[in-house]
């Protein structure tokens, strides 16, 4: 057992017993860990506010190797993203980031690169307008896959290496990228994607997150992008489950939510 110090991002937390919290964090030095924060819910103790989801904190904890639960000693806020908590869309996408990390990072696999990526996307979600949140989340997903060593190819045909010019392109998750018309037979299950969407995916992958706000995806592009990314995650990362946060966002979509059901004449 030793006392460890690190920076961390709060992914989620649950009430444990009367006044304690069970907190899942992604740390810079140790990857994902679970911490017990005793007495943290009693409000005179400011720890609960530091342990709210999406807060960037600095912690010391009693570190027992081979243990599932660690004990939190001290916590300080490095940065809290207050606008995330004030808008349903921003909050839901931040939730989706947290869910994805929590789900696909198994345990103590440290990655400074991933730590920085999570901070970057939370910072951008906090700063940019809510309409940009979906683009930021796609950008995050593509980079997240890259941090696991999977980089889908959107610049050229994965089979022959030709540039992508024509309209009838396909995305093959198993082959990890686009197929041109001539190579389409290489994967008959590949998804049809318009050239505009392919260009957008290439930009999402290559441009920094804080430069994505200029993109204005069409309805068709949004649909295709979601399909492409979902099929890629399903095939390479064995992740087929829906994200609860995104389902929540759908459920509060004006027109389908409880408000319109209740207020309808």
């Amino acid at each position: 057992m030793s006392i460890s110090q690190t920076q961390a991002i709060v992914l989620n937390r649950y009430v444990m017993g009367d006044s304690s919290l069970l907190v899942t964090v992604y740390t810079r030095e140790f990857g994902k860990i679970k911490l017990v924060a005793r007495g943290a819910r009693k409000s005179k103790n400011q720890r609960a506010s530091a342990l709210e989801p999406f807060t960037h904190i600095s912690i010391t904890f009693r570190h027992k190797e081979q243990r599932d639960l660690q004990t939190l000693n001290q916590v300080e806020v490095v940065q809290s993203y207050r606008y995330l908590g004030e808008d349903l869309t921003r909050m839901s996408y931040a939730g989706a980031v947290s869910e994805l990390v929590n789900r696909l990072v198994i345990g103590e696999e440290p990655s400074v690169e991933l730590f920085d990526l999570i901070l970057q996307v939370l910072d951008a979600l906090n700063r940019e307008q809510p309409v940009v949140a979906e683009l930021l989340f796609w950008g995050f997903q593509l980079r997240f896959a890259m941090s696991f060593g999977y980089a889908p190819q959107f610049e050229q045909c994965v089979a022959c290496g030709e540039g992508l010019q024509e309209e009838s392109l396909r995305f093959s998750a198993p082959l990890g990228g686009m197929l041109c018309r001539g190579c389409r037979s290489q994967d008959t299950d590949a998804i049809q994607v318009s050239l505009g969407t392919v260009r957008m995916l290439a930009r999402l992958q290559a441009h920094p997150l804080d430069r994505l706000s200029i993109i204005r995806p069409s309805r068709q592009s949004r649909h295709e992008t979601n399909r492409v990314i979902r099929s890629f995650f399903a095939y390479h990362m064995d992740d087929t489950r829906e994200l609860k946060s995104l389902r929540f966002l759908d459920s509060i979509d004006p027109g389908t939510d409880i408000a319109s059901k209740t207020l309808a004449p």
């Binding site: 909050m91 869910e99 609860k244 946060s245 929540f248 409880i258 209740t262």
Partner: peptide
């Protein structure tokens, strides 16, 4: 309500 834990409006006494 909780996006991450999947608690939606119809789970509460909102209506």
């Amino acid at each position: 309500l909780s996006p991450m834990d999947g608690i939606h409006a119809e789970d509460l006494k909102i209506q």
